[in-house]
Amino acid sequence: MAIIVNLDVMLAKRKMSLTELSEKVDITISNLSILKTGKAKAIRFSTLETICEALDCQPGEILEYKQEV
């Protein structure tokens, strides 16, 4: 997929584990794992909003577009 999810990078920058984020944003670890591994097909604005709030970042820092070769 051309959209890359940099959730792991942001988690590392904020020194936060996936479990901690899961507790903060009230999303199951399995769903966050789907997002982190790039298996997700879509992301709701509400989910993006809560993640950005928890990680104190912008959506552009989590999502990145890379052209497929």
């Binding site: 789907i34 298996k39 997700a40 097909k41 879509a42 709701r44 989910t47």
Partner: peptide, 8 residues
């Protein structure tokens, strides 16, 4: 259904 399942 699959798309919905993989929507976070």
């Amino acid at each position: 259904y699959e798309e919905q399942k993989l929507t976070v």
